[in-house]
Simulated scan of single mutants.
Amino acid sequence: MKNLFKLVFLFFVLFFITGCTSKITSENIEPIFTSDKKFPYSIEVKTFGGKDKNILGIQEVSNENLLKAVSSTIKKSQLFQNVVTNDSNITLELFIVRVGQPVAGGTMTVNVEIAWALKKEEKIIWKKSIITSSTKTISEVANAYNRIIEASIFATQLNIKQGLLEISKLEL
């Protein structure tokens, strides 16, 4: 009976320390973005450089999640006429340069750098490297792993929003 009590106590301590594990998904990195600009073109989105996890096993931003989030944001905002997988007028290429995540700390800052390139007829018409950051503290998110993930999610949302805002200012 005493061992069972210890086991149950250990389970609750571990659950309290680790909490629920956050995950980076295409849905939670998708920002709220609106634009008055509506381009009369189809666009194809391509992503490169993403990883599911870093060498320490901490989740990062995958190509698939970034592709889905950016495509969905463009569709919802109607920035472009539609998002297609081929035969597009415009191609948006996104290269995840880095997702700088800390290993430990009470306050965790994540930096996300994505290189954005817009092509029309295979010629680059606009390019920019965008770096965004997000910081989460122990008072906001108790679990260290979740702090890293939540900061990664918010920094990626900011990057997508900033990139699309920049594109919306272009004359295509």
Rank of each mutant, 00 (worst) to 15 (best):
K123E: 12
V84A: 03
E121C: 04
I131P: 04
V103W: 10
I148F: 05
E150F: 10
S129D: 00
L164F: 11
L118Q: 03
L94I: 07
E150W: 07
R98A: 10
V83H: 05
K123R: 12
L94H: 08
V99T: 11
V83A: 11
L164W: 10
S77H: 03
A115G: 10
L158H: 07
V141E: 00
E140N: 08
S152V: 00
G163E: 15
N89S: 15
L118R: 12
K75W: 02
L94G: 07
N82P: 08
V110F: 04
W126Q: 08
K127G: 08
L164Y: 09
R147W: 01
D87E: 14
L158A: 13
Q78A: 11
N146I: 05
V141G: 03
W116D: 15
N143V: 06
V112E: 01
T132Q: 12
N82Y: 08
V110P: 01
S129R: 13
I125D: 13
A117P: 03
Q101I: 04
M108R: 15
E140A: 05
K119G: 07
A115N: 09
E150N: 14
Q162C: 11
Q81Y: 09
G106Q: 10
Q101L: 05
N143Y: 06
V141A: 00
K75E: 00
L165Y: 15
K119R: 15
F95Y: 13
V84L: 05
G163V: 01
I131L: 09
N111H: 03
K161G: 14
I90D: 02
T109W: 04
T137Y: 03
A117S: 14
W126L: 09
V83Q: 06
A144D: 07
V99P: 02
W126A: 12
E140Y: 02
S139W: 01
W126M: 09
K76C: 04
I125M: 08
Q101M: 07
A155S: 14
A151D: 09
E121T: 00
I148E: 01
T107A: 04
T132S: 13
K119E: 00
F80S: 06
S134D: 06
T107R: 00
N82F: 11
V97R: 04
V112W: 00
K76Y: 03
T91A: 11
N146K: 06
R98Y: 09
F154K: 14
Q101H: 10
S152Y: 05
I74C: 07
K76S: 09
V97D: 13
A151V: 04
M108G: 13
L92R: 15
I90S: 03
V83N: 07
S139C: 04
K136V: 07
V103M: 12
K75D: 01
I96L: 06
L165D: 14
T85R: 07
I138L: 07
I90E: 05
I138N: 08
V110R: 08
T137K: 06
I149V: 05
A144H: 05
K136P: 02
K161P: 08
Q157I: 02
A142V: 15
S134M: 05
T91K: 00
S133R: 00
P102I: 10
L165M: 11
E93W: 07
A142G: 09
E113L: 12
P102S: 12
I138W: 02
